[in-house]
Amino acid sequence: MSGLAPGEGVDAGAAPLAHEPLPTDEVIIGAPTTAVHDLATIGGVEVGIWEMTPGTASDTEVDEVFVVLSGHARIEFVEPALPAIEVGPGSVVRLAEGQRTAWTVTETLRKIYIA
């Protein structure tokens, strides 16, 4: 699957994605894998599909808004410290550049991101 051409569409919930293991220094629990597929870059803004299998991993975020298509996870905000949130289908979340998080995915999570 490659980036979308103008006028082209894709079923973001069913599109096949190629998973890879996360770097070991990011894995906290389990053996989660992730997949990402860039759909488009519009005016310097990236839009794509991201997916993570069950497990817990740390991340340092970029400026992003995402919408969960499927799955469930708990996102802990390590730095700056903020209350953890539960996300599932339909959740819309804003992340900030440099924010440190820990993602605990209980059901493979797929989201559309805008970054």
Rank of each mutant, 00 (worst) to 15 (best):
V47E: 04
E107Q: 12
T24N: 02
E26F: 14
H72E: 07
G48C: 04
I75M: 02
T60G: 01
D59P: 00
D25H: 15
V45H: 01
E86H: 11
A31W: 03
L17H: 06
P80N: 09
P83K: 10
I29Y: 13
T60R: 06
T33W: 00
W103M: 05
G9K: 15
A57Y: 01
G48W: 03
E86D: 13
A15D: 00
I49F: 07
P89W: 00
W103H: 04
H37S: 05
E107D: 13
E97I: 08
V105Y: 02
A14G: 11
V10A: 15
R94M: 13
Y113N: 08
L39D: 00
H72K: 09
V45S: 01
V93D: 01
T34E: 15
V62R: 13
V65A: 08
R100A: 11
I49H: 02
A14V: 10
R74M: 12
P54W: 06
P21S: 15
S70V: 09
P80V: 05
G43H: 13
H37K: 08
T41E: 12
L17S: 04
V68S: 04
I75H: 00
E20W: 09
Q99H: 07
V93W: 00
A96Y: 11
V68I: 10
L109M: 12
R94G: 07
E20R: 15
Q99V: 07
W103G: 02
V62G: 09
R94T: 14
S70N: 09
P80S: 08
T106V: 09
V105K: 01
R110W: 11
A84H: 13
I42C: 00
G30P: 00
D63R: 04
G71Y: 02
T106I: 04
L109T: 08
E107F: 05
V105D: 02
P21Y: 15
E97Q: 13
W103S: 05
A81W: 06
E26L: 14
L22R: 07
G88T: 12
G48S: 04
L69I: 12
G43N: 14
G48H: 02
H19Y: 14
V87P: 00
I28L: 13
H72R: 10
S58Q: 07
G90F: 05
Q99D: 05
L69S: 04
I114E: 01
A84N: 12
T104Q: 05
V62Y: 08
A15E: 03
G13S: 12
A5M: 12
E20N: 09
L82T: 06
E26Y: 12
V105R: 00
M1E: 14
G13T: 13
L22K: 05
T34V: 10
A57I: 00
S2P: 04
I29G: 08
G44I: 12
Y113F: 15
E61S: 15
P21M: 15
V47R: 00
M1T: 14
V45L: 06
V67T: 15
A12F: 04
A96P: 02
H19L: 15
D63T: 05
I114D: 01
D38N: 10
P83Q: 10
A81G: 10
A35N: 04
V67H: 05
L39R: 01
R74K: 14
D25F: 12
I112F: 01
D25I: 06
G55Q: 06
V105F: 03
T41D: 09
P32H: 07
G9W: 15
Q99C: 06
T56V: 11
T41K: 09
I28K: 08
G71N: 06
A12K: 02
